[in-house]
């Protein structure tokens, strides 16, 4: 069972899992970070309150967040085909993964940015700062620890989703686990992939937390 092809397959699985997770998280932030910022600014008590914009985004996020990932995966297949050219494999999985990650990221970013004290924001307003400066320097700058913890959580979640995509031939370690463990009753291979998945999550978690701690200056002695 542990021949060369198997090892190559597992290595490729690890590579694909990393690829899917990192790419989807990245694209997820491309969409989700602005969403979180807009939510923070437009909510009441924000620096540009706008009920309509806030409510609209809020509803969109709530709806997309309630669609189970497996259903979303199937639902967006036509879109996936349009963008990637096919609906299976790891590149294709990035599309639904990004769409699932974005609203989650929007919420996480919103909650991180809202941790920033009203006082510092007001100080910046009183200095005549532009909204752009307040967003990047005050909101994102001050919330960076919390934002990084958020990235870590998102990576773990997206990796979990990517494994689910294995059901429809999504590629990566999840795909291998389902093909061997479920269709061929090869528990050994499934367990090995599982060990890798856990190790990858641990690695990301550790790296994220380390970076978050390193960048935090709030409780320096």
């Amino acid at each position: 069972m542990w021949d060369k092809t198997m090892i190559i397959m597992l290595l490729e699985g690890i590579r694909d899992t990393f690829y899917m997770t990192l790419a989807s998280t990245f694209f997820g932030y491309v969409i989700g970070l602005p969403m979180g910022i807009v939510l923070t600014l437009t909510d009441k008590g924000g620096i540009a309150p706008n009920r309509t914009v806030y409510r609209m985004l809020d509803i969109v996020i709530n709806i997309t967040r309630s669609v189970p990932f497996l259903i979303l995966l199937i639902l967006v297949m036509p879109l996936t085909k349009l963008i990637v050219g096919k609906s299976y494999g790891s590149a294709a999985t990035i599309v639904p993964l990004t769409l699932a990650a974005a609203p989650l990221i929007g919420r996480m970013v919103e909650s991180s940015l809202k941790e920033v004290g009203q006082g510092v924001i007001e100080a910046a307003v009183s200095m005549g700062a532009r909204t752009r400066t307040i967003v990047f320097k005050v909101l994102i700058g001050e919330a960076r620890t919390s934002l990084l913890v958020g990235v870590t959580i998102v990576l773990g979640t997206v990796l979990g989703y990517s494994a689910m995509a294995g059901v429809v031939g999504g590629g990566g370690l999840g795909d291998i686990a389902i093909r061997y463990g479920y269709y061929r009753y090869d528990t050994g291979v499934m367990l090995v992939t599982l060990v890798f998945i856990v190790a990858i999550v641990q690695l990301m978690q550790g790296a994220g937390m380390f970076a978050a701690k390193k960048l935090d200056h709030r409780n320096k002695e």
Binding site: G117, G119, V120, E122, A123, V125, S126, M127, G128, A129, R130, K137, V138, G141, E142, R144, T145, L215, D216, H217, R218
Partner: peptide
């Protein structure tokens, strides 16, 4: 915004950038 740059304000809780 520009006028505010010349009106300084200090606060009870200092409101410094902690990071």
């Amino acid at each position: 915004r520009l006028r505010r740059q010349k009106i300084g304000m200090i606060f009870q809780h200092f409101n410094l950038l902690e990071q």
